[in-house]
Design a protein around this nucleic acid. Structure first.
Length: 104
DNA sequence: CGGTTGACCAAGT
DNA sequence: GACTTGGCCAACC
């Protein structure tokens, strides 16, 4: 099993509906800077419905990419309450969900 | 084991 | 504001 992907899935599952997160946030939460590895893992791991990879966007608020196409990703986000326009999330920071580090 | 690529990020031009 | 460069990590050849 790919631990890396599993880690990403675990964090991703924490993201509530109507919220989005970024590859960077996931990587940081994992304690690494593998922003690319996160995205790569997602792309290479078409995991079952348990992992809403469509809730993951880039740090700029753009959708980034999706196996089914950005349009499908945008449609899914809209369906969950996230407003997507011109291929990017509207009010990105307001819908952005950040993971808390265990420390503190 | 080295080189390339990728659903990335930040800074520079 | 769009394009280029450097950097980061994991996976594939």
């Amino acid at each position: 099993m790919n631990m890396f992907a599993e880690q990403c899935y675990g964090l991703l599952k924490q993201v509530p509906k109507g919220r989005v997160t970024t590859y960077k946030a996931i990587a940081e939460a994992l304690g690494t800077k593998a922003y690319r590895a996160v995205g790569s893992a997602m792309h290479a791991n078409p995991h079952p419905v348990e992992v809403p990879c469509h809730r993951v966007v880039k740090s700029d608020g753009t959708l980034g990419g999706y196996v089914f196409g950005i349009a499908e990703k945008a449609a899914l986000l809209e369906s969950e309450g996230v407003v997507v326009q011109a291929g990017k999330v509207v009010d990105f920071e307001s819908v952005l969900f950040t993971f808390e580090k265990v420390s503190r």
